[in-house]
Design a binder for these strands. Structure first.
Ligand SMILES: [Mn+2]
Ligand SMILES: [Mn+2]
Ligand SMILES: [Zn+2]
Ligand SMILES: [Zn+2]
Lengths: 141, 141
DNA sequence: GCTCAGATGATCAAGATTCTCATTTCTATC
DNA sequence: GATAGAAATGAGAATCTTGATCATCTGAGC
């Protein structure tokens, strides 16, 4: 089971950490806010504090288990690190998040950075638009 | 002078708005936080409240006079709208911000979005790296 | 100069995230 | 399996950024 991931990351195997990892692995939504994870914990009867959720997520991020994204909105979202880098498209109407990877964009980013004398380490790219999905109602809030 | 910009935007010409616009136009740093603008106002002896700075910047943004960016950090930064869209490279060490525009990246973004069934409206792209500028000390805080 | 819609400033408030610290839980050891 | 020490947790306070309230002030038109 997944406790090996925790041990590998040098993190003590505790109940909150296991539960949070479980939610990240099994939730139908790949991109979750800390509060969404917290609510799922409450719903499944776990007595885990919100501060712990934030703390654990930050540790998971430092350990490379999850990555943190800022997708226009005040809350950060977290997703399990699954090896490959990717960027995101967000629907302005329904909030749906799609993932993509485009080698041309990645290469041009490296070239642009080099051209400006930067050793590029990371980047954040988010596209915003309206998804033409037939199941896209306007976002409630 | 610049009061015409305010009038054009349908905003009453007031002292705080003029001073803030002036700072955005004349500051050596193109990308300023609300607090940085507030401090410049204080330094030049103006008695303008921080709430007004935030309010005015939000109005300027709505009027298309400035745009608001989130460049890794808790504070948003604002810059004068000068017509052309561009993206940013930020130095992890000294915080220097460079601007760039790459038509290939722009085009691929449109293509990727279309491919995923999105009508793209906007995007946020920030590259992070170490600038090899000889005048780049490690950032103090 | 006068009027009043609109703008300002002081303060309070909200939302997200982190910090503090007493208490609890792992892990290692016996 | 019991025990001790280190690390983790939970409750709540604290912080930081930004927006809201509301009484007061100011600018544009007359
Ligand atoms: Mn993703
Ligand atoms: Mn810029
Ligand atoms: Zn949608
Ligand atoms: Zn630098």
């Amino acid at each position: 089971m997944e406790t090996s991931n925790l041990k590998k990351a040098g993190l003590k195997v505790t109940l909150p950490r296991m539960k949070i990892l479980e939610i990240l692995e099994n939730s139908e939504t790949r991109h979750l806010t800390a509060e969404a994870i917290y609510r799922e914990l409450l719903d499944s009867g776990e007595e885990i504090g919100l501060a712990t959720v934030y703390r654990v997520l930050t540790q998971f991020e430092a350990a490379g288990l999850v990555c943190r994204l800022h997708l226009e909105g005040n809350q950060a979202v977290f997703e399990l690190e699954r090896g490959g880098h990717h960027d995101h498209i967000v629907c302005n109407q329904c909030g749906r998040v799609e993932e993509f990877f485009d080698e041309t964009i990645e290469r041009r980013q490296r070239e642009v950075a080099q051209h400006h004398g930067f050793a590029i380490k990371d980047h954040a790219l988010v596209l915003y638009g309206d998804c033409t999905d037939n199941a896209c109602p306007h976002r409630p809030a």
